[in-house]
């Protein structure tokens, strides 16, 4: 029998293959992200505000909205095809599914951000001379981790309720407030090159990430009990 992580890896690989074969969803999500970035930077241009001050907020609000679309795919894929039962039977342990889908969500989110963040960077024309790029990337990575973990958990919940998929953002946002705060302030600190404050907020993000990566071990069996 393959190990826990081997199975998670197989599911992850299967999901990526599947996702890239029908690019409908990926494509509309990335276009949505680009539109979002364009609209917000254009709107901010009209009222003439200091760019570095608004960049973190605009960045994370854009990522949040993009994530709402991107994170609803992980379990929907299984439920729409009806393959969830077959997968559960093959996986044995239900938390394998969580970790596989979490990695898938995180990968998709990071790919989308790889397109959208540079665009926002250019559109808003950030003053980057003092910026600490390494910490900026860390902020994006750990912020996305939290988004992907919570999103995967909640997607497993919402796909089971026919016609209730609109609930996803409503369930997600109250839980994600700490990520929003941590990620925005971390980004701000990274832009200003203020390592001290960045580290503090990175720790907060990591604590959140850790919590929502471990909680599923306890609760996921109940979610997918069917």
């Amino acid at each position: 029998m393959p190990s826990f992580w081997r199975k998670a890896w197989l599911i992850y690989r299967k999901d990526l293959t599947d996702e890239f074969r029908t690019t409908d969803h990926l494509l509309s999500t990335v276009v949505f992200g680009i539109m979002l970035v364009f609209v917000t930077s254009f709107a901010l241009q009209l009222v003439d505000v200091s760019t570095n001050d608004v960049f973190p907020a605009v960045l994370w609000v854009s990522i949040f909205f993009m994530a709402v679309l991107a994170l609803q795919r992980s379990f929907a894929k299984e439920v729409d095809s009806g393959a969830l039962d077959a997968l559960l039977l093959a996986a044995g342990d239900r938390s394998i599914l969580f970790y596989a889908k979490f990695l898938f969500s995180l990968t998709v989110l990071l790919l989308l951000e790889a397109v959208v963040v540079p665009l926002l960077w250019v559109f808003i024309s950030v003053a980057w001379r003092k910026a600490d790029v390494l910490f900026l990337l860390a902020a994006i990575f750990f912020g996305s981790w939290g988004l992907a973990a919570v999103g995967t958990l909640l997607n497993a919940i919402t796909v089971q309720l026919a016609g209730a998929r609109l609930l996803f953002p409503i369930l997600a946002f109250p839980l994600l407030i700490p990520v929003l705060i941590g990620a925005i302030l971390c980004t701000q600190g990274a832009l200003a090159g203020d390592r001290q404050s960045v580290l503090g907020w990175l720790y907060l993000l990591m604590i959140f990430d850790l919590l929502f990566t471990v909680i599923p071990l306890l609760l996921f069996d109940y979610i997918l009990e069917g």
Partner: peptide
């Protein structure tokens, strides 16, 4: 388990569907 529905991944080929589950079982 052979269910009422085929429970397959529509975007994967016959071979990929079978290989995926095969690998999950070793």
């Amino acid at each position: 388990y052979v269910a009422h529905q085929p429970m397959l991944y529509p975007n994967l080929s016959v071979q990929e569907n079978l290989a995926f589950f095969g690998e999950m079982y070793g």
